[in-house]
């Protein structure tokens, strides 16, 4: 039996469910960085999925949805602060990294701690756009008082014959994302592009940056792969990280 066969059987038994707790944990961990194993697992998932059709559908108790929603609300309430803490850890990690990574960290540090207007009634909000949940590709800072924005590439670079486009999505705007604007060739964006949205809406909005054909999406909706970000207040960080 070859190594590939062994790996395939490991994937198959993982999907079938016959591995013990320890083996399952190690496979779940390994697949995160072993793309071959991950692909084998996915292949077995779709191969065996029709077996699941045999399962009788059973309606859960009437309270379960409310329970799930409460749990999500709780989690979301914690998230803002948790993200900022994670950001701080990531920042520290970068500072010990290579020269390139350090440069990226500096960009981020400056953005995190530099408010636009010192007199602003509210602290600036920052959104981090991550690729593969590993490193921020862009940062968006929004000063809610003046509704001015600043987009800053962190690890993102201009792509030949492609444009990055910033989108906003918020419940009052309906189910589809709306274009905020196409980033310029130097990856900047008109700072007033958000000025007609009110600050409450901006606070609860989701932002996305997608890769589009040069000049922006031809359809008015994101057509390429996208990365997302949410706005978080920077007030707490500002006190601790003022440069």
């Amino acid at each position: 039996m070859t190594d590939h066969d062994d790996l395939d059987m490991l994937a198959a038994e993982f999907v079938l469910g016959t591995l013990d707790a320890h083996e399952r944990e190690s496979v779940a961990h390994r697949r995160q960085h072993d793309t071959e194993l991950d692909a084998l697992i996915r292949a077995w998932e779709s191969r065996l999925a029709p077996l699941g059709d045999e399962v009788k559908a059973i309606t859960p108790g009437p309270d379960l949805l409310a329970r799930i929603e409460r749990r999500i609300e709780q989690m979301e309430a914690d998230t803002g602060e948790a993200r900022v803490i994670r950001l701080r850890k990531r920042l520290r990690y970068w500072q010990w990294g290579t020269g390139l990574a350090t440069a990226a960290a500096l960009v981020m540090a400056i953005l995190l701690v530099t408010p636009f207007g010192r007199e602003a009634a509210e602290p600036p909000f920052v959104a981090v756009f991550q690729q593969n949940d590993q490193q921020p590709a862009f940062m968006l800072t929004v000063d809610l008082a003046s509704q001015r924005l600043n987009v800053q590439p962190v690890t993102a670079e201009p792509l030949p014959d492609k444009s990055y486009q910033l989108w906003i999505k918020a419940d009052p705007l309906g189910p589809d994302p709306r274009s905020v604007g196409v980033l310029n060739d130097d990856l900047s964006l008109d700072p007033t592009a958000l000025s007609h949205y009110d600050s409450e809406l901006l606070k609860n909005a989701t932002f996305g940056i997608s890769v589009e054909p040069a000049g922006g999406s031809p359809t008015g909706q994101p057509t390429g792969p996208a990365i997302h970000g949410y706005l978080y207040p920077t007030e707490k960080e500002a006190g601790q990280h003022r440069l």
Binding site: P225, I227, H228
Partner: peptide
């Protein structure tokens, strides 16, 4: 990368 921002042609209503 995620595809979540991609708009769907089939309306999800």
């Amino acid at each position: 990368m995620s595809d979540a921002f991609r708009s769907s042609t089939a309306r999800d209503d």
